[in-house]
């Protein structure tokens, strides 16, 4: 088979490839804009402050202002725990001496229930999410475009065969 006879196929394939790329990219971005969440961002440093007197409040079973029951993070975030209390505190693997700070990088996306010395429930939920960023969207494009192109190309050959002169 000569190249000339393949040219109409290649042309049609290229047209479908370009159209599919634009179409999928457009759908991708529209869906992203509609479903975008606060956690679709680049990783950052997030600070959690343990106020002075926290240990006393926890011993009394009272909730401490500013300490949530669950925190949501993005993969790669760094959690900085600032301990303004007079005793040391722990949040899972993070150990913070009094009037000091400690940090931990969150490098695995998952839901955690960590033992926590500054919450009356003794636990703090950490939800580490995989963010949807430009790279995840490009990966989606990389998977979707070739398969869509091949399917549409095969369908087009059945629906409108190329006439050989």
């Amino acid at each position: 088979m000569k190249f000339e006879s393949l040219r109409p196929y290649a042309t049609r394939f290229l047209i479908i490839l370009i159209t599919a790329t634009f179409f999928i990219a457009a759908v991708n971005e529209i869906v992203f804009l509609i479903q975008k969440e606060d956690t679709d961002r680049i990783p950052m440093e997030i600070e959690l402050v343990i106020p002075e007197g926290t240990a006393e409040l926890v011993a009394l079973g009272e909730q401490v202002t500013g300490i949530p029951d669950e925190m949501v993070f993005v993969l790669g975030d760094v959690l900085v725990v600032r301990n303004q209390d007079v005793v040391s505190h722990e949040l899972g693997p993070v150990f913070v001496p009094p009037e000091s700070s400690a940090s931990m990088r969150l490098d695995t996306a998952d839901r955690y229930a960590l033992s926590c010395s500054f919450n009356p429930s003794r636990y703090l939920g950490l939800n580490v999410k995989q963010p949807t960023n430009i790279w995840t969207r490009l990966t989606a494009l990389l998977f979707a475009v070739p398969t869509t192109t091949i399917i549409v190309f095969i369908y087009s050959l059945a629906a409108k065969p190329i006439q050989q002169h």
Partner: peptide, 9 residues
Amino acid sequence: QFQGSVFDP
């Protein structure tokens, strides 16, 4: 990035 809990400073 250290994987342990980091004293800061």
